[in-house]
Design a binder for these strands. Structure first.
Lengths: 156, 156
DNA sequence: GTATCCATACTCGGATAGTGGTTGTCCGAGTTGCTGGGG
DNA sequence: CCCCAGCAACTCGGACAACCACTATCCGAGTATGGATAC
């Protein structure tokens, strides 16, 4: 099980957009992180479809956060890029084979599926508890107030 | 992000092995669940490498749990089949690009990586809290005490 | 009757192809900002 | 001096290949069983 690497890019881009005071083109974000511009564009499109960022076209266009960073959770970014479906997909093997459980006894998910769903929910809750603003605050705490300011200056 | 489908098979097989009182061949488990015998063998080999089950060769051979079901957690099964590495892999993009953070300032993981690691740990904790014995108990609660007894009878 | 040997059948284990999804790339549609001219 | 029209450049958006991991499969190595044989 490996998560799409685009999730990492998207999260860092959201933090960077926190520091920006104008639309930032995808190419600029790609140059800042030294990653493929074409592929990063795909991730940003996913964020745009999810409504987390707004795309501005034209000469001074780019991407902007649609709301305050406190209102964007990490989970929303992850789901936008990686898909909202849970990692574990129950195939209902209890209903197969010679000792198949009859459908009328399968109104609730099986024990295995319940355990995996509970873990998935714990994972989502942890990601839901962290916002982009929290990440930006941690960045400031880790590298000092000049970090985001330097990024803002470089972006222009 | 999609988890290997073999995890579901492995977990159900562990629950079934709880009910067995003698080695169960992989082919029998595959027939019981109506899945590919060759592919299920691969998952059981993973469990064997991890030390969760013991393989017995020869005519009356098969697989047996190495310990009491209370001592085998769902997390151990998941890690045995799916691999122990976390889903999110930090590529340290903060150290790349024109504003790269110097290595001496990267002694601790970045904020993004920390958030993802915390969620991963919550996920693992939830899976660690459930044992194969818990799953077997839930199966009995869902379908009655005859369920596992029927499986045990069918296995011989 | 008992112990030994052997042939047999059955088991697991690792090495080997096929397929879907993620990764990476490209070009076209649309919009904005600038420039030049006219009033 | 102000307004307008046209152009040009830049942006995003979706459609198109390449690579990798998961899926699925096979055959060989090893071992316990059962029977036959010799004592």
């Amino acid at each position: 099980m490996r998560m799409s690497g685009g999730v990492e890019w998207a999260l860092h881009c959201c933090v960077v957009l926190t520091a920006a005071d104008r639309p930032v083109p995808a190419a600029r974000l790609a140059e800042l992180h030294d990653v493929s511009a074409s592929y990063l564009a795909k991730q940003l499109q996913s964020l745009s479809r999810a409504g987390l960022v707004r795309s501005v076209q034209g000469q001074a266009g780019g991407y902007v956060l649609t709301r305050a960073p406190e209102l964007v959770t990490v989970l929303q970014v992850v789901e936008a890029v990686d898909g909202p479906e849970p990692a574990f997909a129950c195939t209902e093997i209890r209903q197969r084979g010679p000792l198949a459980t009859p459908p009328e006894a399968c109104l609730v998910p099986c024990a295995v599926s319940r355990a995996m769903a509970a873990a998935d929910e714990a994972w989502r809750a942890a990601l839901r508890a962290v916002t982009i603003a929290d990440l930006a605050r941690d960045v400031t705490g880790d590298y000092g107030p000049g970090a985001l300011a330097g990024i803002r200056a470089w972006l222009r």
